[in-house]
Design a protein around this nucleic acid. Structure first.
Length: 370
DNA sequence: AATGAGCGT
């Protein structure tokens, strides 16, 4: 074995390091196992800030093995370090072979316990419970060296009760694969959401209306505590084809004399994510629209308030917002006026800049940050 | 509910 290969065999990767951890500290820690040839904490080229991982190069491979066996998940600066053999082949690390995803993991289960639980199935390259300042996030990854070990772990562990939770254990899927899978599931929906049918509705009648599209599994009109319809409900069909027909045929049709919305039922989180995204879009659009349409006004007379400012500026266009900045009910002497277009704002600035309002001459500029 | 991050001299 040449020199390089020999040292390679004694190199450990240390991940999940606190950024304050120094070479010195690591040297002291790992020297307790055996002679350390070198330590390298990887740092940002410019800021020199730790990237949160390091290499520990032992002189003897046996010492590296010993460190791996005895120091994995030890806490440094309160963070559990993750030890692995240095594996420089990116494909070997990222192929996903042998990688297992675990969710619904009892929060009391930490890295070491996870490692011990799963090492029964084969050699583990890396194990990690995802966590934040609050502790475990309830999901984890165990990367086995061999796919066969991963398969055994899935077979044996999926659905087991660990602590108070029945864990899910399955093959790891990349984000891309996972998203594709979710899209496929969504496209094969069987559950249908119906809204805007008013309060004159019950399960039986809703079932009557939708049964013509296929066999239903469950039909439910959502009600308030007094039992009154909330105007929306769900119909779950046996087949996707039936659900699809129901959506295609019923969406926009009248029930109780009003057009109803009929579409794929979304999960709550999915719906929330969509609403959030839509809200974000709206916010961005508003910012885009207000670019160049917002005036910053200084040297305001103390007596000028929102209403007066609005009145003065409305002559130049549609004022969407006015605000005289205040502190303890007292004008701070400056404010903002937003128009619906940059043209209106420019006109207002040309006409009003320097004009006296009350006792003082206005100083107007375009507000830069919308 | 949740499908990482991470590889140098």
């Amino acid at each position: 074995m040449n020199v390089e290969a020999k040292y390679r065999a004694a190199s450990l990767y240390v991940g999940d390091l606190h950024t304050d951890v120094t070479e010195d500290l690591l040297f002291k820690k790992f020297s307790a196992v055996g002679p350390v040839l070198s330590i390298r904490i990887c740092r940002d080229l410019v800021s020199r800030r730790s990237l949160g991982y390091a290499y520990v190069n032992f002189l003897q491979p046996a010492d590296a093995q010993k460190a791996l066996d005895t120091m994995n998940f030890d806490l440094i600066e309160g963070k559990s370090i993750r030890l692995m053999w240095s594996q420089r082949d990116a494909h070997a690390r990222k192929s996903g072979i042998g990688n297992v995803f675990i969710k619904n993991l009892d929060k009391s289960i930490h890295n070491k316990v996870l490692y011990e639980l799963f090492s029964a199935f084969g050699k583990i390259l890396s194990a990690k419970v995802m966590s934040d300042e609050q502790g475990s996030k309830g999901y984890a990854f165990v990367h086995f060296q061999d796919q066969s070990a991963a398969d055994r772990a899935i077979e044996e562990m999926n659905g087991q009760l660990l602590g108070d939770c029945r864990v899910f254990v399955g093959r790891f899927k990349s984000r891309k694969d996972r998203e594709a899978e979710l899209r496929t599931q969504a496209s094969e929906f069987t559950n249908v959401y119906i809204k805007n049918f008013g309060d004159d509705m019950d399960d039986e009648r809703l079932k009557d209306i939708f049964s013509k599209y296929g066999q239903t599994q469950s039909v439910r009109v959502m009600t308030d505590p007094s039992g009154k319809s909330k105007g929306f409900g769900f119909v779950s069909f046996d087949s996707h084809e039936a659900a699809k027909r129901a959506v295609e045929d019923m969406n926009g049709k009248n029930i109780n004399g009003q057009p109803v919305f009929v579409g794929r039922a979304q999960k709550k989180v999915e719906r929330q994510a969509e609403l959030k995204e839509r809200f974000e879009e709206l916010r961005k659009a508003r910012i885009r629209a207000s670019r160049g349409a917002k005036l910053y006004i200084k040297n305001l007379d103390d007596t000028i308030d929102d209403e007066m400012l609005r009145k003065e500026f409305s002559a130049f266009g549609a004022v969407s917002r006015v605000k005289v900045m205040q502190e303890e009910g007292q004008s701070k002497g400056f404010g903002l006026v937003c128009f619906s277009s940059p043209e209106e704002a420019a006109r207002a600035m040309a006409e009003m800049n320097g004009r006296t309002l009350g006792t003082k001459a206005l100083h107007i500029a375009l507000a830069h940050r919308p």
